[in-house]
Design a binder for these strands. Sequence first.
DNA 1: CATCCGGATATTGTATCCAATCCATGCCCC
DNA 2: GGGGCATGGATTGGATACAATATCCGGATG
Lengths: 220, 220
Amino acid sequence: MTATEPPRRPPTAQEFVLAELRRSIVTGELRPGEQIRQEALAERLGTSRVPLREALKILEGEGQVAYHPHRGYFVAELSSADLVEVYRIRRLLEDEAVAAALPLLTDEDLAALQDAVEAIEQADAIADIPAMTRANRSFHFLLIDSVGMPRLTRLIRQLWDATDAYRSMYFVEPENREQVRREHREILAAVTARDLPRTLELLHAHQDHAVERVSRVLGH
Amino acid sequence: MTATEPPRRPPTAQEFVLAELRRSIVTGELRPGEQIRQEALAERLGTSRVPLREALKILEGEGQVAYHPHRGYFVAELSSADLVEVYRIRRLLEDEAVAAALPLLTDEDLAALQDAVEAIEQADAIADIPAMTRANRSFHFLLIDSVGMPRLTRLIRQLWDATDAYRSMYFVEPENREQVRREHREILAAVTARDLPRTLELLHAHQDHAVERVSRVLGH
DNA sequence: CATCCGGATATTGTATCCAATCCATGCCCC
DNA sequence: GGGGCATGGATTGGATACAATATCCGGATG
């Protein structure tokens, strides 16, 4: 779980809108570079523009959307250079997080990781891209959540969000899913053995492959 | 300068409000933990609540304020553990940025750093805390801006923002200002010599001292 | 033929009003 | 006297109406 306490309260309109926006961006329903038409989108979501705008402001603060005053909000777009930068920063932060987390993982954590790997394989089997994206995230965040550094986790999450749309794109191809699936099994083995150097080595290869694949997507 | 192009257009109300909020948080005018009363604050700023709320949403996305639905916004508060975490992440990111930037610094950059150091000393001389805070930031960001990694710079800026209020507090004491002033001179010398190990060593010491001082402030 | 200048139109930005929720106070009941 | 509950006031959340700004297009002008 990602440090969100379960709100027993009915969600506010703006919470709903924010979740919906995130989903739309991740799935590529709202495409990178696309302008967000407030009135049309608000109507489609069944609210007024006010909650929509406030949700957009959060995403602006997180860098998920670009804002041009008096012109509007645009889904953030990644250049190749941006992509390389995102992964470079991710490596810095995730290495630290994993190194700190590895000795702290409990048996329950390992079991949860095992479950996540199986979820990935199931999603792969039925070619359910969104489920695959979710399970993939879930695996990697389980790995680092236990370190108890909420800000670090938050930053890493922001970086993931920035590339999720592209990740969804390459999950479409079965051979990419197959590779991701295999790599997670290997990472899990290294983690279970508490072998930090090996874990990092595998994670780095995992990331490098992701950069390659996304680069291909970016180059059409 | 932190990559903000000069907007030739009259600022919108919400841009003004956002800048004002940031300033108030940095200077401690709005104190950590304090609830932000929207109506009163909006009136004081001469706008309606709408631009204020949108500005608050950005700060929420950046983690500068905490939001509790139906209860309000509160200026973010740092525990000792948070403080240590922030500096730990900063070190990761800034080391990378400085290492990448050091070989790229131009003579103009070095001159600008020189100017920043002098601005720090002037601010110290007349005990102008906000100016000192600004000059301090300016020095450190000049050091990393030239690396041309906008996302990295952005993340580092967020981390700085999180602790600016506390930094302002310890700048009140002359001996702290004196130490900061001296350390910047030393860092500048190492940077000018393009001596990366020495630069990092000095920066680490600089950060460690900051953690110590802020910890004292936190412990009242 | 290219360029510059309005003005119409679409879209965003802000103010105001009302509804929903929370919190404190005081009452009643146990 | 203490704890639960209703009620009033304060505060936030959301909808609507209006103002400000940008964009697009047609026409005048060099």
